[in-house]
Design a protein around this nucleic acid. Structure first.
Length: 332
DNA sequence: ACCGTCACGGTTGAA
DNA sequence: CCTTCAACCGTGACG
C-alpha cells in the first residue's frame, strides 16, 4: 500500500519508505554539492540522511545521473531478446500460429532447449505484451522499457508531488551495452546558469518569479534533461494538472518554518530554510513537465541508455509557488 | 565531525 | 487474475 503520508526521519525530513526521493531533492543534492557544500551540510539542509546524500552523490559521480535506479520488474528469464525476435518472426509468418506451436518451433529451431524454452503462457504473454499487433514495433531492445503506460494511477505518494518514480535511468551498474556511460558533453555539468548568487542557484531566487508557470528562465540548458530517461516519464503530464494541487495542500499543512537555525557548523553557508516539505512541492513537476521531460513518454532516444540525464544546468528549482509554503532564506 | 557502507524494512513490476 | 522474487529505495547505525 502506498502510504499516503511519508515518514519523518531523524532530521525532520519526510520520506516514503521504499521509494526514491523526489527528483527535485536529488537534484538539489547534486547542485549543492557542486557549489562546494559539504555532504553533511547538504544532509542537514535538505533533511536527507547522509547515507542517502552520499549514495546519490556517488551515483551521480559515477553515472552522471541523478535518477534513482529502476525499481521492480525482473529480467527476462526465458524471454530473451533473441527468443522474442524468433517469436515475432514466427508470428509474422503465420499470424494464426498457436503459442504451443511457437514453443515447438523454438525447440525445433534450436533457439531454446527444453530447459529454457518459454512456457506456453509466457509465449502468450509475449505475444500480447511485446508483439501485439506486430504492425511495427520492431524493437525489443529494452526489456525494461515501460510501455506507454496509459495514465498511470496516482503516483505512489502525494507527498511527492512530482509524479512517478521516474523509472530511472539504469543508473546503476555498468552502462548498458552500447551506451557510453557518460556522454562527455553532459557528464559533468559544471555549467551554471549565469546567475551566481547562491539563492539563485538554489532556486529560491524568486519565489516571486515563479508565478508564471513556464519556466521563469528560458533556459536553454534545461532541455538537456530531456535526454533523461530510458524509460518513460509517464506521469509527468498528468501530474501537472492533476495532483499537484492536492499534494500541495497536503504539504501545506506540514510546512512550517523552523525557527532554529540548525546547522551550527556551517557558518559560511547561506542557509536555506526550506520547509523540508517544500521540496516535495509541485513545482518540479511543472518544471519537468514543461521541459522536455516528456521525452520519456515519446521517444526515448536511446532506450536503455540514456540514463544520463544530464547536466544540471538548471536554473534552480522552482521552489514553490502557491503560497502555502514557507520558504525563507537566511544568511548567516 | 565526517563519511562510506550495509542491514533493514519497505515498494515495485516483469515473469 | 494472482504470486514470486530480484531489483531498487532511504534510513539509521556502525566503524
Amino acid at each position: 500500500m502506498t502510504p499516503a503520508f511519508g515518514e519523518v526521519n531523524q532530521l525532520g525530513g519526510v520520506f516514503v519508505n521504499g521509494r526514491p526521493l523526489p527528483n527535485a531533492i536529488r537534484l538539489r543534492i547534486v547542485e549543492l554539492a557542486q557549489l562546494g557544500i559539504r555532504p553533511c551540510d547538504i544532509s542537514r539542509q535538505l533533511r536527507v540522511s547522509h547515507g542517502c546524500v552520499s549514495k546519490i552523490l556517488a551515483r551521480y559521480n559515477e553515472t552522471g545521473s541523478i535518477l534513482p535506479g529502476a525499481i521492480g520488474g525482473s529480467k527476462p528469464r526465458v524471454t530473451t531478446p533473441t527468443v522474442v525476435k524468433h517469436i515475432r518472426t514466427y508470428k509474422q509468418r503465420d499470424p494464426g500460429i498457436f503459442a504451443w506451436e511457437i514453443r515447438d518451433r523454438l525447440l525445433a529451431d534450436g533457439v531454446c532447449d527444453k530447459y529454457n524454452v518459454p512456457s506456453v503462457s509466457s509465449i502468450s504473454r509475449i505475444l500480447r505484451n511485446k508483439i501485439g499487433n506486430l504492425s511495427q514495433q520492431g524493437h525489443y531492445e529494452s526489456y525494461k522499457q515501460h510501455q506507454p503506460p496509459p495514465q498511470p494511477a496516482l503516483p505512489y505518494n502525494h507527498i511527492y508531488s512530482y509524479p512517478s518514480p521516474i523509472a530511472a535511468a539504469g543508473a546503476k551498474g555498468p552502462a548498458p551495452p552500447g551506451v557510453a556511460a557518460i556522454p562527455s558533453a553532459m557528464a559533468m555539468p559544471r555549467t551554471w546558469p549565469s546567475s551566481h548568487s547562491v539563492t539563485d542557484i538554489l532556486g529560491i531566487r524568486s519565489i516571486t518569479d515563479q508565478v508564471s508557470d513556464t519556466s521563469p528562465y528560458p533556459s536553454p540548458k534545461v532541455e538537456e534533461w530531456g535526454s533523461l530517461g530510458r524509460s518513460s516519464f509517464p506521469a509527468a503530464q498528468h501530474a501537472v494538472n492533476g495532483l499537484e494541487k492536492s499534494s500541495l495542500e497536503q504539504e501545506a499543512k506540514y510546512s512550517q518554518v523552523r525557527g532554529e537555525r540548525g546547522v551550527g557548523t556551517a557558518p559560511r553557508l547561506l542557509l536555506l530554510w526550506v520547509s523540508p516539505y517544500m521540496t516535495y512541492s509541485a513545482a518540479p513537476s511543472g518544471y519537468m513537465a514543461s521541459h522536455g521531460w516528456q521525452h520519456a513518454g515519446g521517444t526515448p532516444l536511446s532506450p536503455h541508455g540514456c540514463d544520463i540525464p544530464a547536466s544540471l544546468a538548471f536554473k534552480g528549482m522552482p521552489a514553490t509557488r502557491e503560497g502555502g509554503h514557507s520558504l525563507t532564506a537566511s544568511a548567516l
